[in-house]
């Protein structure tokens, strides 16, 4: 019996992932996020609705999309599309595009259907100590659906890990989702409430409260800090976040060194860039951040291995 009220859109199932938790995993990316991080790695997942995604590099500029679009909006993926015409996501251009440079990101699946797809790689999870990672977007936006999915997976002995931004309603989360989670990766970004509002689009009070609560009641919580140059990687912020982690009774933290690939993704979606930094983070910088955290008494661990 399902208890789903709303079915989220799934953007992607990434099989054979070795980067999002222990072992060999499948990552489910749900659509929709309550935050608006300026450096969002998965901008296509922010909106809770399907979006049209285009990949410029593979586009042949053959014009098949232009001919196919009933509203006259579609343009080859190498060019911008006119904002003044709405895209209804009818999929005509996707069907017409020979090079696969266009896709509608988003699919709605019943939890049992999604479960079956995820179980496909169960043998790999079991043999590698892997499992399923729920990510997004923000999976806690759909506590009942995701909770049901997690429950089903746990019943089949699948390790379930959630990656959350922490912005959720504690009651629903603790009732529907929390009991079915094996591991929680909890992202902490900025300690300063004002800067948090400015760069993430929301206050950090709820997030930090949830963090303390979840650390108290769940045995396997790993806080993660995205290292965003000039925003989150300064000594003060790192020290303040470390204090939060230590005061919640945890001793480990993982770092997510900056990855600039999101910039192109965001451009492909026709979105503006509120923050731009197109370089990978140098190893020395990552080591500096690690050292800053180690000095506070925290152990820095790998996000994939933890």
């Amino acid at each position: 019996m399902t208890r789903v009220r709303e079915t989220p859109w799934v953007v992607d199932l990434k099989r054979n992932s070795l980067d999002d938790g222990p072992g060999i995993r499948t990552v489910v990316f749900f659509k929709g996020c309550p935050l608006r991080c300026a450096w969002c790695q998965n901008p296509e997942t922010v909106s809770p609705l399907p979006v049209l995604q285009r990949t410029g590099e593979s586009c042949l500029s053959c014009g098949a999309c232009v001919t196919a679009c009933p509203r006259g909006r579609a343009r080859p993926a190498r060019e911008p599309e006119p904002k003044e015409i709405d895209c209804t996501r009818c999929g005509s251009c996707v069907e017409a595009c020979p090079s696969g440079s266009r896709r509608i990101a988003g699919e709605q699946l019943a939890p049992e259907v999604l479960e079956q797809r995820l179980l496909r790689d169960q043998v790999f999870y079991r043999r590698s100590g892997g499992g399923v990672t729920l990510s997004g977007g923000e999976p806690t936006l759909f506590t009942e659906y995701v909770g049901e999915l997690a429950r089903r997976l746990r019943a089949r002995d699948v390790h379930v890990l959630i990656e959350t931004c922490g912005q959720f309603e504690w009651g629903a989360f603790s009732e529907h989702l929390l009991p079915h989670l094996s591991t929680i990766y909890f992202d902490l970004k900025l300690a300063d409430a004002q800067r948090h509002r400015q760069w993430v689009g929301r206050d950090n009070t709820t997030i930090h409260e949830n963090f303390r609560k979840v650390a108290r009641v769940h045995a396997d919580v790993l806080p993660r800090i995205p290292l965003v140059p000039g925003l989150t990687d300064d000594e003060d912020n790192l020290r303040a976040l470390a204090e939060l982690v230590l005061s919640a009774g945890l001793r480990r933290v993982a770092l997510l060194p900056y990855n600039p690939l999101w910039v192109n993704k965001r451009r492909a979606l026709g979105l503006e860039l509120p923050y731009a930094h197109t370089e990978w983070m140098p190893k020395a910088e990552v080591e500096r951040c690690e050292a800053a955290l180690t000095r506070t008494g925290l152990a820095v661990v790998s996000g994939a291995a933890a």
Binding site: L18, G23, I24, V123, F124, R127, S128, G130, A305
Partner: peptide
């Protein structure tokens, strides 16, 4: 050790299948 473990996980799964 991690690499060995991964290779064995793939090979073992393949055989199990």
């Amino acid at each position: 050790a991690r690499v060995v473990e991964r290779m064995a996980a793939y090979a073992g799964s393949y055989f199990e299948l």
